[in-house]
Design a protein around this nucleic acid. Structure first.
Length: 426
RNA sequence: GGAGAGCUGGCUGAGCGGCCGAAAGCGGCGGUCUUGAAAACCGUUGAGGGGCAACCCUCCGGGGGUUCGAAUCCCUCGCUCUCCGCCA
């Protein structure tokens, strides 16, 4: 959520910046609601003040044993006036909240203009694409070849966009999780965390998935529960600091967590329907940082570097792009996508997305720190990034490490987690 | 699932329907004393919002109600704890 004070004083330039994110802010509605709010709030508070003073006077008079009937008469219609004003004000505040909860974050000045992913800025290309002297298989063929990935059985059990894994491929999938969590906690200073996979509406509003992106979520609506399956660990992990005032000495906070992620993929019919690229359920190791405001842009560079390190250790070719304004996520001010090379698709595909949210999420979830310079609670900045998406990492290894006979080498760095297996034989 | 107890500021914890945004202690900050530190003493210290300002408003788990007036009474929801049952 954007700062209401800033919107009041600096509306035009904010509206301009939001246009680079293809968002048209309804200024006339905002100004109209804001004008009404101002007069109604002043009126309501005046009535409250009057009521408070009169009630206190009654208390005093009663204490002295004076007759209070005349005072009671004079206050009688105040209460009804106040009630009306309060109801109106409340409705108005809710309208303003509804409006502002749907407004995205402002892109950082270093974010390139553009509408689609074609306008993203490539800032780094790492590693050499493998050269094959045979017909390259994609992960679907390889998975079938090894009886390791099965989309048909998964479809029978659960429907489309699910997969089952069996044998060494399932082991490597698990190994990737262990490797990534270990590496980030041992070498990058992250604290390992375990969090719920079902969360309530408040948590999702806090990180920005609600109210606008409800259709992307799986909803559990039973008699006693109103919960959502998490679309990313970002939701429960970032909300660890919701409604808190942190000491300066606690920052930065760096969490790493592995969770499954669940996405309805409502808007992606027909996209990536084959294979493991886009599933309703997938695993991800997530990095989250809670930092002081003046440190968040540097923290984004660091966090992205931590995700890159995993790709480098796995020797997977990738490129790093800055998302353009039109491709930028709702809550983010700047996002780096890491795109891994997939020989089977002859394309780079997203495997990590690292974003700085500034105070956008912190304001929604009331996450603050006490600034020693001012002595006052101020909003923290939040960041998150995949470090990495596990399923996509698995298929990147399958496709990049495949051999002519269909066997798949296992990256050296994973060997300690593979029960002695160094190669998946054909 | 059954029975009971509770939820108050950074923490512990008091609080008769009006003098309560809230005692006291701890912690924090500033100071006195000290070579320095500790101790002691003095002062100070909740959050959010409105208003150009003076100043005002809201908040005692969430929501609703009673009342001129609610931290305090009533209803409801949530959460925590204890005991019993069941269970990975």
């Amino acid at each position: 959520m954007l700062d209401r004070k800033q919107l009041r004083t600096d509306l035009d330039s904010i509206v301009e910046k939001l246009r680079t994110k293809n968002f048209e802010f309804d200024t006339s509605l905002f100004n109209q609601l804001e004008d009404q709010r101002k007069s109604l709030q002043i009126q309501t508070q005046n009535l409250q003040n009057k009521k408070n003073l009169q009630s206190k006077a009654i208390g005093k008079a009663k204490g002295k044993g004076d007759d209070i009937q005349s005072l009671l008469d004079s206050v009688s219609d105040l209460a009804s006036q106040l009630k009306v004003a309060e109801i109106d004000l409340n409705a108005l505040q809710n309208s303003l909240d509804d409006l502002l909860l749907g407004v995205p974050n402002i892109p950082h000045e270093s974010v390139p203009d553009g509408d689609t992913e074609d306008d993203n800025l490539i800032v780094l290309i790492w590693g050499d694409k493998p050269e094959f002297d045979f017909q390259v298989q994609d992960h679907i063929d390889l998975g079938r070849h090894h009886n390791g990935l099965d989309f048909e059985i998964a479809a029978r059990i659960s429907g489309s966009r699910f997969v089952t894994m069996t044998g060494p491929l399932a082991t490597m999938h698990r190994a990737l999780i262990q490797f990534m969590i270990n590496y980030h906690s041992q070498h990058h200073g992250y604290t390992e965390t375990y969090v719920p996979y079902l969360v309530n509406e408040a948590a999702l509003i806090g990180t920005g998935q609600l109210p606008r992106f409800k259709e992307d979520l799986f909803h559990i609506d039973s008699k006693n529960h109103n919960l959502y399956l998490i679309p990313t660990a970002e939701v429960p992990v970032t909300n660890l600091v919701a409604d808190s005032i942190l000491d300066a000495g606690q920052l930065p906070i760096k969490y790493v967590a592995h969770t499954p992620c669940f996405r309805a993929e409502a808007g992606s019919y027909g996209r990536d329907t084959r294979g493991m690229i886009r599933q309703h359920q997938f695993e991800k190791v997530e990095l989250v940082q809670i930092v002081k405001p003046d440190e968040s842009m540097q923290a984004l560079e660091d966090l992205t570097g931590h995700a890159e390190k995993i790709l480098q250790l796995l020797r997977l070719p990738y490129r790093k792009v800055i998302l353009c304004g039109g491709d930028l996520g709702f809550a983010s001010t700047k996002t780096y996508d890491l795109e891994v090379w997939l020989p089977g698709q002859d394309a780079y595909r997203e495997i990590s997305s690292c974003s700085n949210m500034l105070d956008f999420q912190a304001r929604r979830m009331k996450a603050r720190w006490r600034n020693p310079d001012t002595g006052k609670p101020e909003l923290v900045h939040t960041l998150n990034g995949s470090g990495l998406a596990i399923g996509r990492t698995l298929i990147a290894i399958m496709e990049n490490y495949q051999r002519k006979d269909g066997s798949i080498d296992i990256p050296d760095i994973l060997h300690p987690f593979m029960n002695g297996i160094t190669k998946i034989q054909s």
